[in-house]
Design a protein around this nucleic acid. Sequence first.
DNA 1: TATAATTTTAAATATTTGTAAAATTTTACT
DNA 2: AGTAAAATTTTACAAATATTTAAAATTATA
Lengths: 223, 223
Amino acid sequence: MQMNKVIDILMIEDDFEFAKLLGSFLEKHNIKLKNYTDPFIGLSVPLEKFDLVILDLTLPGLDGLQMCKEIRKKSAVPIIISSARSDIEDKIKGLNLGADDYLPKPYDPKELVARIYSVLRRYKKIEEKNEPLLLDEKNSTIYLNSKALSLTPAEFEVLKILIKNYGNSVSKEQILYSSTVFANSSSNSLAVIINRVRKKISSIGSIKTVRGVGYRLVYHENS
Amino acid sequence: MQMNKVIDILMIEDDFEFAKLLGSFLEKHNIKLKNYTDPFIGLSVPLEKFDLVILDLTLPGLDGLQMCKEIRKKSAVPIIISSARSDIEDKIKGLNLGADDYLPKPYDPKELVARIYSVLRRYKKIEEKNEPLLLDEKNSTIYLNSKALSLTPAEFEVLKILIKNYGNSVSKEQILYSSTVFANSSSNSLAVIINRVRKKISSIGSIKTVRGVGYRLVYHENS
DNA sequence: TATAATTTTAAATATTTGTAAAATTTTACT
DNA sequence: AGTAAAATTTTACAAATATTTAAAATTATA
């Protein structure tokens, strides 16, 4: 996996030797591991310095599940629980307390790396959404600079397809046949709707016509 | 876990009996499972209808990893790979291809449920605390921001169906035939009830009309 | 049975989509 | 460049569909 940025991970694990070994392995994968053998000290660390937390369940003095709960109270940082207890109930409790993954010990460190990247990929996807038009299909809503656009159903369908095919042009037929909304539409009716959508998104982009074919969404330079 | 909304899951699994069994287990946890034994048919399904995909790795005719790749090409839908192959290399490949989790078979279905919720929580597909409308079917009550809404029987039925189908639109017929409350209703009577429910939930959401079809519940942005 | 609450009906209003004609832009040809 | 044909856009209005209102009918409740 291609990665330019070093990933900072906080681990709470009382087996110091294991932590050291794991740390040097992760280093090769662009991951910097900071381990605390003492959960109380680990908890006092500023969590925002880290991209992810690896939590051992069998900690001295404090239950790892309890710790997971404590972390979730103050932060949404991704958590991977790792534990020698492969008890199903522990797994379920851990995941329900807000952990993102649960990895039974012993594990192959390569799997840990894959899971770290998987969790972070998931996490990032939510963070980085800087497109001027944001499609929320479940809510049938399109946000223009995080403000909901007021669109009629037909307008929504058209813009939805254009957003989904951003970067490519879309044929008129592709739009017309995409939804029952256009069940009895002539192709001129589509032109009318395109015209109306154009006005509504004019502040951030435009719909270029691809003559003889269809349309293509483009954003303005500074968007 | 308290849950309003039914979670729609697409599964690609050639063991039909297993799928059936799992489906009825998940049902108890508010999860609706749609299984396809044929990966090619499964791939042709509109992915945006589903909240998550469960993928079996050992499929006839097509490699599961290949399938994972195909899905990722067209969608960011969460994917959990489940496989009898507990080979580390497969795990790593799967996770690196964009899967969100990898669950070796055989697994406890309870763990699957926990992992489904964990993945969806990360995707913010499910609102943990801020679900503005909470359905309590046993007590025939709907809470708006934890305050009981005053609804007539017909209003309750309508809103219940809309909440349960949050994310999808519901046809007028589907509502009308759902309960004896509407035994002798014209479709205009439904419009009147929708109108009244709209007023009651206006602070946190709205009911969008799907022209020619029915209605769909949506929540406001800041809810 | 009377009263209140709820649902239904029907008519008025409002919104969304479709149509057709005019205006504009693009293309290809001279 | 100039021009005619084709494609696309715009406009204004018509048609279809959905919403709102208020009052009548029904149902539930005391």
